[in-house]
Design a protein around this nucleic acid. Structure first.
Length: 818
DNA sequence: GAAGTGGATATACC
DNA sequence: ACTGGTATATCCACTTC
């Protein structure tokens, strides 16, 4: 049988001791197709240098004899081949050792203790990744496939009968279809509502399901009026059964939730177990399985379960404005829509008339989740295609894992044998290493500046890695002529000039990023945007990857050298810019802000070209922008210019604020808004006097207790369990109070509180903490001094206005002096 | 018991 | 544990006089 096919979900099974990949996907007609395929399974034994042929022959014979007897299952080495390969860029002789089952590779490795063997590699990729590399059936690409249709066949123990698919095909040939064809997946979003937040502790009151042209809330809690999209069941057990029934009926490619790995799916499973209901969601009727470990991952056979929260964290959060990644805030930012207004209560306290509201709330959460998925779909798709890993993995992996996936799937071009994962011991050693020196940050002189230009290096660290060939495989233990070298920690280190595979891959990543960015500019669409962004994220993460203790290609020297070269380059650029007659006022890591000093924009651009012609390798500066005004302030101590804190007014009148309290979520709203207004007035009109008047107004209001308590709430994240805090800060007190009142609090929550007046003269701030709904009056002194004045003081200091003295009505010394 | 200092903590920047 | 280092600011914890 012949058909086209797009792989979506990857799984595998054992049959008669052998591994088979089981890939679920669709064809162009939307029929669900499962292909079953096998691939050679092997690992590498890298031989010691200069081994004589007869020794190798002897070794091969010995390896061929390896037999395993594992838990009653006997297996052996199937075949052995000698190959010329590369390992960390070095030519090596390696023996390819074939086994029947991927799971046996570890045990075979244990038997390869022969002295002729230098290293054993390639046994720890996982079968799916190994299969994708071997057979090149990559996720979400279209294929023309041919194979034997399995129809009530006993070939794989009757697998086709147990699977709910249209065709089950034993793969014979496959050919990638070059042209890009659109694929719109069938998606079902879900969300549950419960009485308790702890997994399985309370009852599931309702579950909502939303797909294209489908919306449903299943519940056993009845209201006066039943909306058409609500379906009543008798009890929780029936709710679970109905849920399974609908998922099976709709049979989506993707089942999507929000924080569903950590909440919805494990909850459903726990409650199903309690009621003895089978949660047979898989296409083979299997129940969801969870990976062990702290971070649960819920997997359903044949249907890709997605927890959107995880993907948003890795792919989007760095660009986002939202203060939390709650469904509500994320929806607001991406969709301009919010959750329905409904105050969650224990079901016993919900009045009959309010249940309808609750249904709507529940339904809308799924609506938002589905819309978010649709918005993120291009990114999920591109991530999966670029990393060549299934969406299930790619949507949950962090960027370091994504970098590693990209590397592993591209090693074959370099004839490279994959490096192994670090072991437990290796990881703890790496973690012990102290920090190496990082980026250079220029200390600004506080002030209000005009006509500022800003340059930055494109993919700065990535470009440094490529330019100076910095990686594990290119690092030289000893000094060598004609190599790149740099001093780090008082010691010179060297890297060969012979291009390594890591820098070469990164070069390609950066080039692709440029290409797609260009294409995007000319002809924008969501796919190009996602593709360009995925390559950008990859390029940016490559540096951190080499310094990350969990990386296969960990190389502390490469990471330290990257930072060192970057420091050198930016300092040289700063010098060159100053030499040209500009004045650099600020720089952080890869960006340089300088005064135009009456030169025109075209002069600046011409100079940029000249700078670029002189930069080494693929290093390149680009124009970040021209700015009308810019503000830099002192640190609180007032002794120096504050780094990582500035505000710019663009040519387009857009204001860019970095580091100021305005952008920090752990300051109260009033302080943030007040500071924001001050910054805006100063940048836009250059009028600090008016800004001062404004602040005076705010202060007056505070003193008159006219400020809304809402604007005084301070939010701080609880980053660990309450009991683990050594220093009991205000937000820990607030969290303790919440616990006392039986308001659920857990690690990761944003704790809200305000500082109140207290009768007794207690000194510590924490003694004045009250929860938002706790009765009390706000502490005038605290908000005046610690929030408002702290936020605006050093801004006015730039204009020699001592706001504290002005407010307190003292003689305006500094002002008078001028 | 006030003042000073270092540590713990959270958050932001790139 | 799930990329890296640099930096600011606050408040607590502790020491010192």
């Amino acid at each position: 049988m012949k058909t086209d096919f797009i792989p979506i979900d990857y799984g595998y099974f054992d049959f008669q001791g052998k591994n088979y990949a089981k890939i679920i996907g669709r064809n162009q007609e939307g029929k669900r197709v499962c292909i079953i395929d096998s691939c050679p399974v092997y690992l590498w034994a890298i031989l010691k240098d200069n081994l004589k042929q007869d020794k190798i022959n002897k070794l091969i014979k010995e390896i061929k004899k390896i037999k395993l007897d594992l838990k009653g299952r006997k297996t052996k080495v199937e075949k052995v081949e000698l190959h010329e390969k590369n390992y960390l860029g070095k030519k090596v002789k390696a023996i390819k050792i074939f086994a029947t089952n991927y799971k046996d590779l570890h045990d075979i490795t244990d038997k390869l203790g022969m002295p002729e063997i230098e290293k054993r590699r390639g046994y720890d990729l996982g079968f799916i990744s190994h299969y994708i590399i071997e057979r090149e059936i990559t996720p979400l690409c279209w294929y023309e496939i041919e194979g034997e249709m399995l129809n009530n066949s006993q070939e794989f123990g009757g697998i086709d009968m147990a699977l709910d698919v249209d065709f089950c095909i034993k793969l014979e040939t496959s050919k990638k279809i070059k042209e890009e064809k659109k694929f719109t997946p069938k998606t079902l979003a879900y969300d549950i509502e419960t009485d308790e937040l702890k997994i399985g502790q309370g009852e599931i009151l309702m579950v909502s399901l939303v797909s294209e042209n489908f919306k449903k809330v299943i519940t056993w809690k009845k209201s006066k009026q039943k909306p058409s999209w609500v379906e009543y069941v008798e009890d929780e057990a029936e709710l679970l059964e109905k849920f399974v029934e609908y998922v099976r009926e709709i049979s989506p490619d993707f089942l999507v939730g929000y924080f569903s790995d950590g909440f919805d799916l494990p909850y459903l499973k726990a409650r199903a177990e309690k009621h003895n209901v089978k949660l047979s969601l898989g296409l083979d009727d299997s129940q969801p399985k969870f990976t062990r470990g702290i971070n649960l991952k819920g997997k359903i056979n044949g249907i890709v379960h997605i927890d959107l929260l995880k993907f948003i964290k890795t792919a989007y959060s760095q660009y986002m404005q939202s203060e939390t990644l709650s469904l509500n805030e994320v929806s607001k930012e991406f969709l301009g829509d919010t959750k329905k207004d409904f105050k969650l209560k224990h079901s016993s306290k919900i009045e009959e008339k309010d249940w309808e509201k609750y249904y709507e709330y529940n339904l809308h959460d799924s609506v938002l989740t589905l819309k978010l998925f649709e918005k993120m779909w291009p990114d999920l798709l591109e991530f999966s295609k670029i990393m060549k890993e299934p969406i299930f993995e790619v949507s949950r992996n962090g960027m370091s894992k994504n970098v590693e996936s990209y590397i592993l799937h591209n090693l074959e071009k370099f004839n490279e044998i994959p490096e192994k994962k670090p072991g437990y011991h290796e990881i703890s050693e790496r973690k012990q290493r102290g920090k190496y020196q990082g980026a250079f940050v220029f200390e600004p002189t506080p002030g209000l500046y005009e006509n500022i230009a800003m340059f930055d290096f494109t993919s700065s660290y990535g470009s440094v890695i490529v330019t100076y060939n910095l990686s594990k495989s290119t690092f030289l233990e000893k000094e060598k002529e004609n190599s790149y070298n740099i001093e780090t920690e008082g010691k010179k280190i060297y890297f060969t000039k012979k291009q390594g595979f890591f820098p070469e891959m990164l070069k390609e990543i950066i080039e692709k990023r440029k290409k797609y960015k260009q294409e995007l500019k000319q002809n924008p669409d969501v796919i190009k945007k996602a593709r360009s962004n995925a390559f950008k994220l990859l390029a940016n993460a490559a540096y951190g990857y080499q310094g990350f203790f969990g990386a296969r290609y960990y190389c502390e020297e490469a990471a330290a050298a990257t930072a060192a070269f970057a420091r050198k380059l930016i300092k040289e650029s700063i010098e060159n810019i100053n030499k040209e007659g500009y004045k650099v006022i600020y720089s952080d890591t890869d960006s340089i802000a300088f005064l135009q000093n009456k030169k025109t924009e075209s002069q600046v651009l011409k100079f940029l070209k000249k700078l670029n012609s002189e930069l080494p390798g693929i290093m390149e500066l680009e124009l970040e922008g021209f700015f009308k005004r810019g503000l830099w302030v002192t640190t609180r101590a007032g002794t120096s210019g504050a780094k990582k804190k500035y505000a710019l007014l663009g040519k387009d009148d857009k204001i860019k604020i970095r580091g100021f309290e305005t952008v920090r979520r752990d300051w109260c709203g009033l302080a943030r808004q007040t500071q924001n207004r001050v910054i805006r007035q100063i940048l836009k009109d250059g009028n600090e006097k008016k800004a001062l008047e404004n602040v005076k107004e705010v202060i007056k209001k505070i003193k008159q207790r006219k400020i809304d308590k809402e604007d005084l709430i301070i939010k701080t994240q609880l980053k660990k369990p309450i009991s683990e805090y050594k220093a009991i800060s205000p937000h820990v007190i607030a969290a303790r109070k919440m616990k006392e009142k039986e308001i659920p609090v857990s690690q990761g929550n944003l704790i809200e509180y305000y500082i109140a007046e207290t009768k007794d003269k207690k000194k510590l701030v924490r003694d004045k903490v009250k929860l938002p709904n706790e009765k009390g009056e706000y502490n005038i002194d605290y908000y005046l001094n610690k929030q408002i004045l702290s936020a605006v003081e050093n801004i006015f200091q730039v204009f020699n206005l001592n706001i504290k003295e002005i407010i307190e009505g003292k003689k305006q010394m500094t002002l008078g002096d001028f």
